[in-house]
Simulated assay, not measured.
Amino acid sequence: MNSIKRPLLLSLGLVLATALATQAHTLRVLVNRPVVEQGKKGTVYLSYGHLLPVDELIDAEALALLQLHTPTGSVKPLAMTGKSLHANEVIFDEPGLYQAATARKPLIYCTYTDASGKPAFARVPKSEFKLPEGGKFVLGAKGHQYSKALILCGETSSQAPAPLGHTLEIVVESQPGKQGYSADAPVKARVLFQGKPLAGVKVDAASTTLSPDGLPETAAETDSEGRVTLELPEPGTWILNVTYKRDSAPADRQAFDIESYVATFAIPIAEDK
């Protein structure tokens, strides 16, 4: 596969837009027991915001899907109700690798600074945006978010988790052990955009144990084949995260200037004995 090179983003307002992006809420799907015995229960839930493992609630109306991919390839929809963590109790009755997955519905919004210079945003396309008095328009954007969590159940047959086909996706190519990935060995991953390797993007990783503020503990940039290697030395759940931005298509310029994609993947790191 040919790798995708990052396009040049609009230079106007890029610094401010990046600052706003760092303040944006991140959607993550997590599980309370990422390593579980066959036939036992676990809870899949959503984390939304900045703090780990949970922060704010998210409305079901904002979500496109919440599902569980089983080791045999079936896909089970999970319940999404009201404004909540959308916690689902699941019985893991098949041995192997499960993946919980969620995605947010695309969101179109405008970023600007108010009269005091504070960054702000409005959930409307450029064509409907009315700039407050004293404000300064930055740019319009369309945001996409995808998230996965890996669950190991019983015998995993020494396989790596398969890609799910999200538009932007982190695929871990390392094979986990029975209790997760080793804290003493680097984790190898690949970033795919529309199924093709994505070069030159930063993948960071935050530990739910070390990073309650949600800030990353480590980061690395993908190579020409979209691959990256990360050292994750603390046992527990680590959340890999990648953001990719590109200019909007000419037909969409009336509504937004850029498209922003975010993908996360929660994986278990075992305590080596």
Rank of each mutant, 00 (worst) to 15 (best):
A122L: 08
L164Y: 09
G117P: 03
L139P: 00
G117F: 06
P125W: 04
P106L: 02
I170T: 01
K136M: 05
P125M: 04
P161D: 10
I170C: 10
Y109V: 01
A162T: 09
L168I: 04
A160W: 08
L168V: 03
V124S: 00
K178I: 07
I108E: 14
L150G: 13
S157N: 15
L139A: 11
L131I: 08
H144V: 04
S157I: 01
A149S: 14
T167G: 02
A149T: 12
G140D: 06
E133S: 15
G140M: 00
L152K: 10
F129I: 00
H144Y: 15
A103D: 08
P119I: 13
G134L: 07
K126D: 13
F129D: 00
Y109K: 13
A120Q: 12
P132R: 02
P132A: 02
S182V: 00
L139G: 13
K126W: 05
G117K: 04
E169Y: 11
L150H: 04
P163R: 05
F129V: 01
G165A: 06
E155L: 12
A141M: 11
G117C: 07
H166F: 14
L139K: 14
L150M: 10
Q145W: 08
I108S: 14
V171Y: 02
Y109M: 13
V138T: 13
A103V: 01
L164R: 13
S147A: 15
L107E: 12
